[in-house]
Lab assay of single mutants.
Amino acid sequence: MDVFMKGLSKAKEGVVAAAEKTKQGVAEAAGKTKEGVLYVGSKTKEGVVHGVATVAEKTKEQVTNVGGAVVTGVTAVAQKTVEGAGSIAAATGFVKKDQLGKNEEGAPQEGILEDMPVDPDNEAYEMPSEEGYQDYEPEA
């Protein structure tokens, strides 16, 4: 019985440690998101679009440190934060509304985080759909 109880105690310690790591990862992701939003706020009209992409990228980098179902929630929060940063930029006159959601080359930025393969159960990952990809044929 002692062996059984000791095993359960060790398992509990492992769960607590994993929860603490997840909590730490979420806190880091939130900190990076805040950094990115402050970065966007300090940019001029020309830099705002690039700044919004930076927020998304920093958040995406930190999301990889967070495991399990938390990833889905962090990704949703990050996307809403990026959308909010863009709205703030438009409201303050840093950028025109028609410039939001495009990178410096004018290509749409939507789907940055949505296409990231995420499995809350950590069982399997699927690649994003290939609808947006084109076949590449090298020139002879």
Rank of each mutant, 00 (worst) to 15 (best):
K43A: 09
V40Q: 00
K10L: 04
V118G: 11
V49A: 15
V118C: 11
A69G: 08
G31I: 15
G86I: 05
A124N: 08
G47S: 15
K34G: 05
E61S: 07
K34T: 05
G84Q: 13
I112C: 09
H50R: 12
G106F: 04
V118H: 11
V3E: 01
P128Q: 05
K45D: 00
N65E: 07
E130D: 04
V66E: 01
V82G: 03
E28I: 06
T72I: 15
Y136S: 14
T81I: 12
T92G: 09
E104R: 11
V82L: 12
T92M: 11
Y39D: 15
N122R: 14
V95G: 02
H50A: 03
M127A: 11
T72S: 01
K32Q: 07
G7A: 09
A29Q: 03
P138D: 11
T81D: 03
T33R: 01
G51R: 05
L38S: 01
V77T: 06
K97I: 14
E114A: 14
V63S: 02
Q62L: 08
Q134I: 06
P117T: 11
G47C: 14
P128Y: 12
A85I: 15
S129E: 15
T75C: 06
Q62D: 04
E35P: 02
M5E: 01
E139K: 09
I88L: 13
S42N: 14
E110L: 01
F4I: 02
K34Q: 03
S42V: 06
G36W: 14
E20T: 13
V40I: 01
I88W: 04
T44N: 01
A76N: 01
V63M: 03
E46R: 00
V49H: 00
K23E: 00
L8V: 04
T92Y: 04
Y125S: 14
K6I: 08
K12Q: 01
Q99T: 10
L113G: 12
E35W: 15
E110M: 15
P128M: 03
A107V: 04
K97Q: 04
T72K: 07
K80I: 10
A17T: 01
A124H: 14
T64F: 03
K21G: 00
N103G: 11
S87Y: 13
K21Y: 12
P138T: 08
G31E: 02
E114N: 07
Y136F: 13
G51S: 15
V74M: 11
G36L: 02
E131P: 12
K23L: 07
D135I: 14
D98H: 11
V49D: 01
A30W: 08
A56P: 04
A76C: 15
K80D: 01
Q79H: 02
D135W: 05
H50W: 14
V66M: 13
V15N: 00
D121K: 12
A78M: 14
E83D: 09
F94H: 07
K96W: 14
G132W: 11
K45H: 08
N103L: 07
V70S: 01
F4C: 04
A76K: 14
L100N: 13
D98E: 05
T33L: 13
K96A: 13
T75N: 13
E35Q: 09
V49M: 15
Y133P: 08
V16E: 03
A78P: 00
A78N: 03
G86Y: 07
G47Y: 11
H50T: 08
V48C: 08
Y136T: 03
T81S: 03
A107C: 09
G25K: 15
E137C: 14
V77Q: 02
A56R: 14
K80E: 03
A27R: 13
G68Y: 12
G93D: 06
E110I: 10
S9A: 04
S87E: 01
E104W: 12
